Amino acid sequence: MSTSTAVAAAPPHVENPPWSLTAPLFVVLNGGSGHVEAQERVATVKRVFQEADRTHELLEVSDPQHLPQAISRAIDLARLHDGAVVAAGGDGTINAVVQQVLPTGLPLGILPQGTFNYFGRNHGISSDIEEATRSLLTAHLKRVQVGLINEQAFIVNASMGLYPTLLQDREAFKQRFGRSRVVALFASLATMLREHRDWVIKLTLDDTTHTIVTPTLFVGNNALQMAQIGIPEAPALQERQLVAIAVKPVGKLAMLGLLLRGALGQLGDADKVSSFAFTSLTVSPRRPHRPKRMKVATDGEVIWMDTPLHFRPSPRPLWLLVPQ
């Protein structure tokens, strides 16, 4: 499929939410069921806010099933006291908070604690818990684009096909060998060496339709990640667009070669990779079957979703607290 760049639509006018450097902060943080490292993070956040005499409340979550209730509580408190919600965790945890915060227009702060932290790094937010917490004390608001897949928000990427399988394998490796980028790399290698399915999918791209064959379709909303793997359309993310990457059918060794090219920042130069920017993309799987639901990944979390899949930038921005 040929590369295509759509004309970005003018963003709707959205007023900045009110913000004060004394506004209270309501932090949703996974306490980790008593894990020492997690409790040290909790103690650090409390100490920094107390030393600065900043009004705050920590809503610790030890069971992920209780995360939605904690987020809802933080939103209620932020509305009541003209404050901000703060998400402490990896991109998946931050995504869960964004899902609920985005419709409210409330300010969002983050304390990134994941393996890659693409979202935080893209906006200059440190993964050091003390430094990130201190930066919230003097932070200002920044308008940030959020992607949507069937109205489900994503801040870094969303995908179908091989990539969700890779993420599931990576999580299994992390459970056995710990969370690190080396473990993530070996998990990716193991996935690439297995047999994988090729999908025939119809793409409705803005006003045109294409049919392609691909093992995976990846949609990015993070300029740092796109630039890091060498995708030339990365700047389009600053123009209210998303960026799609499709891999042509290849063998196992060729797939490993593409993984290596991505690690070296040269994926966009590969002749087996097609990338394009868009404002609206509908994905309709055709073969090997036409599923009514399929497995997709959003910000590292694998879920089931009805087809067809519709990708677009959210018309509502996320108001992110970023360092001065």
Rank of each mutant, 00 (worst) to 15 (best):
T208E: 15
L203R: 03
L205S: 11
G220C: 03
T214F: 03
K202R: 14
V200R: 03
L203T: 04
P215W: 06
T204P: 11
E195S: 10
K202P: 01
E195I: 06
T209W: 06
L217R: 01
A190V: 15
K202V: 11
H210M: 07
A190C: 14
T204L: 14
T191M: 05
T214H: 02
G220I: 01
K202Y: 12
L185E: 06
A187M: 08
M192H: 08
T208V: 14
S188D: 12
R194I: 13
A187R: 05
D206Q: 05
G220P: 04
P215E: 07
H210D: 04
D206T: 12
K202D: 03
F186L: 10
V200D: 02
P215S: 14
T211H: 07
F186Y: 12
A187T: 13
F186E: 08
V219N: 02
D207R: 04
V200P: 00
I212T: 08
I212Y: 06
I212F: 13
T214W: 01
F218D: 09
H210Y: 10
H210T: 06
R197F: 13
T216Q: 07
T191N: 03
R197Y: 10
I201H: 01
V219E: 07
R197V: 12
T209R: 02
W199L: 04
T204W: 10
R197N: 12
A187I: 11
V219G: 06
L185D: 12
L217W: 05
W199Y: 09
F218R: 06
L193M: 15
V219D: 03
I201Y: 05
H196A: 11
A190H: 15
L203C: 03
L205W: 11
